[in-house]
Design a protein around this nucleic acid. Structure first.
Length: 499
RNA sequence: GGCGGCAUGGCCAAGCGGUAAGGCAGAGGAUUGCAAAUCCUUUAUCCCCAGUUCGAAUCUGGGUGCCGCCUCCA
């Protein structure tokens, strides 16, 4: 394996090599927990989930840390609005975050530190910076003196003298006056009236935004980590400031690889809270978009490029997933008919795929899939290989669902089983898992629904027999709009599945 | 103004110097109820101009357009 990744730090695609063989330490910038997550967040965490799964499949021991920013102006504003405490807002949204990410099949990070619970590390890092003369305190605030850091700007490739400082004129004049330079940023903010605060050597206050990540990386993973992840909008100033703080405090390079994902766009513009053009993950899932559809949608584009969110592209992903899903379900639902070994999805190990590639064609697909991911996580190509693998399986699946299965000789059957296993394994690296369509419904709805559908099928059959196809089609369309798909089989029988 | 990214068929999207993956939609054929679902087949010379090269969507230079960051942001 030779994984190559685009490193924002060097502006190049370079071979990935971990500091310790077989071990990868990753830190991923998490969310500020003041609200539900939107599709942009989903993209970020799904993409990095694939990176993680891929590394694990390549036998790396991965330690994945991701933070929660649980103190911030927006959380406080939300708390004031909802007349509750900051902690209540944070707790609630952390729960919601997990709910969404679990639904999307994003593996939970190994640890998820919260800013308010890492204050010792934060304070001691600020003290260290102060001792080194890289930080100064003014009236309860502490600022990082950017000019002390000779390499400032190395990540975002910026010359500070060329920047339009505070471009929007959104300058807090009081704060500006306290700073030695307009580019300096807060490490610690003195407490304001009525806001939650924490004790420190500089008085009551709270940490600035950037310092928590620096402190957590050190606390959880050490001075230098393999990979630091985040959205492209964090490159400046957040990651630049992290580098400045950590490298000044520790005297060591913060991260070997900096990876950044592209934004999700709506009508060509970045999806963001402030523009109000966001769609939450929750709304999408509730609206009937399946988690795996979102995964396909996101992974069909390269992670660094902007991704336009439109109804059309989502529909396309949905149709594509439907196709793939049929194939992934094949061996689960039909193993008896096909005489395939019973297969439990939960037990599919994503690091256990080598032995499945038994023939030349499958070995080729397998290799192409791995090569694609090696090449800076080309998930788009990886997915295309899943579709190639799926084609004959799709054919088989439809024979089973709709017709009498044709006789397959033993050799073919075995090859198809192997192909299916490979498909399941490779899909697993992308976090794509079968979503079983229900042809039996939960007990609660069973009586209501099943008999209703049965009745509808009966009426439709009568309509068909009497030649009233318009009526038959109306019934079919009506059920379809309710997620029930009718399938006319040979011999006049009608089956149904719920999508 | 500074830094960075992008421009490929109706839509989304790969491609990293040797002659355009994949998905969706469309078309034709099979099947069917002149239907749905399904299966098979099928559709591009890559924003413009100039250059390098035997050969460029891919490299260089110059345009044009769009976007991101410089302020909270995945």
């Amino acid at each position: 394996m030779s994984l190559k990744l685009t490193n924002t730090l060097t502006k190049r695609i370079e071979p990935f090599k971990s500091l310790t063989p077989g071990q990868v330490n990753i830190y991923c910038c998490g969310v500020t927990v003041y609200d539900l997550c939107h599709l942009g967040h989903a993209r970020s965490y799904i993409v990095w989930d694939v990176l993680r799964r891929y590394l694990i499949s390549q036998k790396y021991k991965v330690t994945f840390i991701q933070n929660f920013t649980d103190i911030d102006d927006k959380i406080l504003a939300r708390a004031a609005k909802e007349n509750c405490t900051m902690n209540e807002i944070s707790d609630k949204n952390i729960k919601e975050f997990h709910c969404d990410m679990d639904a999307l099949g994003v593996l939970r990070p190994d640890r998820m530190p919260r800013a308010t619970r890492c204050l010792d590390g934060i304070r001691s890092m600020i003290e260290k910076l102060e001792k080194k003369g890289a930080a100064y305190s003014v009236e309860g605030d502490v600022y990082f003196a950017v000019k002390k850091h000779t390499n400032y700007g190395k990540l975002s490739n910026r010359d500070l003298s060329e920047q339009q400082l505070n471009a929007d004129g959104r300058v807090n004049e009081k704060e500006e006056a306290r700073k030695q330079s307009p580019v300096d940023f807060a490490l610690w903010k003195g407490a304001k009236e009525g806001e939650p605060s924490f004790p420190s050597a500089w008085g009551q206050g709270r940490p600035g935004w950037h310092i928590e990540c620096s402190a957590m990386v050190l606390q959880e993973l050490g001075e230098t980590i393999d990979i630091h992840l985040g959205g492209a909008d964090l490159i400046f100033p957040h990651h630049e400031n992290e580098i400045a703080q950590s490298e000044m405090a520790n005297g060591k390079e913060l991260a070997k690889f900096w990876l950044h994902n592209g934004m999700v766009n709506v009508d060509g513009q970045k999806m963001s809270k402030s523009l109000g053009n966001f769609t939450t993950i929750r709304a999408l899932l509730k609206g009937g978009i399946s988690a795996m559809t979102l995964r396909i949608f996101i992974l069909q584009a390269h992670y660094r490029k902007p991704l336009d969110f439109t109804k059309e592209s989502l529909d396309a992903a949905s149709q594509g997933w439907k196709r793939l899903n049929t194939c992934l379900c094949l061996g689960l639902n039909n193993h008896k008919v096909l005489d395939w070994p019973k297969h439990d999805f939960q037990e599919t190990s994503i690091s256990d795929i080598d032995k499945h590639a038994t023939n030349e064609t499958l070995a080729k697909y397998h290799q192409q899939f791995l090569d694609a991911l090696d090449e800076d996580l080309n998930t788009s190509v990886a997915i295309s290989i899943l579709f190639e693998l799926a084609r004959p399986l799709k054919s088989l699946a439809n024979q089973l669902i709709r017709d009498i299965p044709q006789s397959i000789n033993e050799l073919e059957n075995k090859a198809l089983y192997t192909r299916w296993k490979l498909l399941v394994s490779l899909a697993g690296i992308l976090g794509l898992k079968a979503e079983q369509p229900h042809n039996s419904i939960s007990k609660k709805e069973e009586n209501l629904n099943a008999s209703f559908i049965k009745e509808a099928i009966k009426i439709r059959k009568e309509a068909k027999l009497s030649g009233d196809f318009a009526k038959a089609d109306r019934i079919r369309e009506k059920l379809k709009s309710q997620g029930i798909e009718l399938i006319d089989k040979k011999g006049g029988e009608t089956d149904w599945i719920q999508n």
